[in-house]
Design a binder for these strands. Structure first.
Lengths: 256, 256
DNA sequence: TCGGCAAAATGGTTTTACCTTTATCTAATC
DNA sequence: GATTAGATAAAGGTAAAACCATTTTGCCGA
């Protein structure tokens, strides 16, 4: 925890540019940039902080809410407002992308393609940089997949963890975050469908192909294996949605 | 414009789950998902909408602010609150990524690598799908670069437009949005530096390489040219920052 | 020592009032 | 008749005070 009792909170200049709440956002952002607020830190109570910044509580709350909406702050009633703690990989909220998809009518084909590009990129990097721990985890998740061929929900858990491990092995947290953003949306769709046993076995097999390529430090092979895997997964999911026409109300391939 | 005078706004259920403002967010999100609110639409005045949803105005404003923070809504004092109009390519706000970078100490190396991966992906797709209009625009921007070798600021404009055109030519708006998110941050850093004439000429040359590969519909060549271009650009920028040590206060390669 | 209860701390919500900006309409003037 | 300036209304932005709900903390008693 960082001591926040000092005078790091400066009052807002009345002759500011833009609205007051925007100034509050800038103020908080700057403090994070400068490292005065670090992950896990607790902000002063709203009433105190409002006084410190020289604004009203609603205005301060507006600023806090904006930062909370983008996943930087998190308020818990009765406890306080905290800078989001980085437990595990940093992740960007996927709801902005989700809304963007609704607004512009992104097709699931586009979403699949984006994921494929990102996954291929991280797979290539993972082949170059994966540590032995990463390799071990990948192997475990594949074993988990084979062990849950008759439990689609459990299979999906191992599936997600496998891809997250590949992303972690890439060593690039930005690509990892972006990939998770896209993958989360697709997994949410998939969670509503029921995978057939045949598809699951094939899927496990293709994950193993990716793993072997990464283990062999073969960048191109890893990218190709990942591309093939995701292409098959897309086709499988699409045919499944064709079978069960009730999955998507409109049935036009748009993101739910 | 969509007629909003109907009864599409339903009051919030008092026996809801979560906080009231979260429910407001869900309500608005659902309306966007269902297409009842479309880009460019104006929401009812806050006072009226608060009544319609059965919540207080501050609570409604909290919900609106959250959606505004992720770029879905936009409020203009005196005018009203609007669903963001999609003029041009849809874009995600880069500030969440920027804050994430500060919080987790992302290096600019990581950022460059992420951009490189994304740009290579869109370049490959662009080689497959670019229309003749896209080709023409790319050619124009390159001409613009050569014409502004002595004007770094103007050069940067053509540079950005070139990359955005490549992204647009990829036909994948999601990858385009993600790429812009990352590229925006890097361009902001670069805007503060002054590029040397020698670098600019080389840069223009490498853009031309990308253009020729796209025009030749050579996917691999386009990806390779883009990779080489960005790699050189990164090295040039890094050496420039070495020359002018005042650019980055800490000088530790972290994102400003 | 442990468990439960109470009090304090803290964010969440509501109400009311007023300010600032924007848009629109009207009327006067050129 | 067209244009512009001013008034008016509409809409979001800010502020203050009060109360509610939840969480935390610590005290007190069994």
């Amino acid at each position: 925890m960082t001591d926040l009792s000092g005078d790091i909170f400066k009052t807002i200049d009345p002759d500011r540019t833009g609205t007051t709440s925007e100034e509050v956002i800038s103020q908080l952002r700057e403090m994070i940039h400068r490292g005065e607020l670090r992950p896990g830190d607790r902000l002063p109570p709203e009433r105190d902080l409002a006084k410190l910044l020289g604004v009203s509580r609603p205005t301060l709350r507006a600023g806090i809410r904006s930062l909370a909406a983008v996943g930087v702050l998190r308020s818990r009633q009765g406890a306080g407002t905290f800078v989001v703690k980085a437990d595990g990989p940093p992740s960007l909220d996927s709801s902005p992308l989700r809304l963007m998809a609704s607004l512009h009518g992104f097709t699931s084909g586009e979403m699949f393609e984006a994921r494929q590009s990102l996954e291929m990129a991280v797979a290539g990097l993972a082949a170059e940089r994966a540590t032995s721990e990463h390799m071990a985890t990948l192997s475990e998740e594949i074993a988990g997949m084979y062990a849950s061929l008759d439990d689609p929900e459990q299979f999906l858990v191992h599936d997600m963890r496998f891809h997250q491990t590949v992303a972690a092995a890439s060593g690039n947290r930005i690509l990892t975050s972006l990939m998770n953003m896209v993958a989360t949306i697709l997994f949410d769709v998939r969670r509503k469908t029921v995978n057939r046993a045949k598809d699951l076995k094939e899927s496990a097999e293709m994950h193993r192909q990716v793993y072997r390529a990464v283990r062999a430090r073969d960048k191109e092979a890893a990218q190709n294996a990942m591309r093939d895997h995701l292409m098959r997964a897309q086709k499988a999911q699409e045919s499944e949605e064709m079978d069960d026409s009730a999955v998507v109300a409109a049935g036009d391939g748009s993101i739910s």
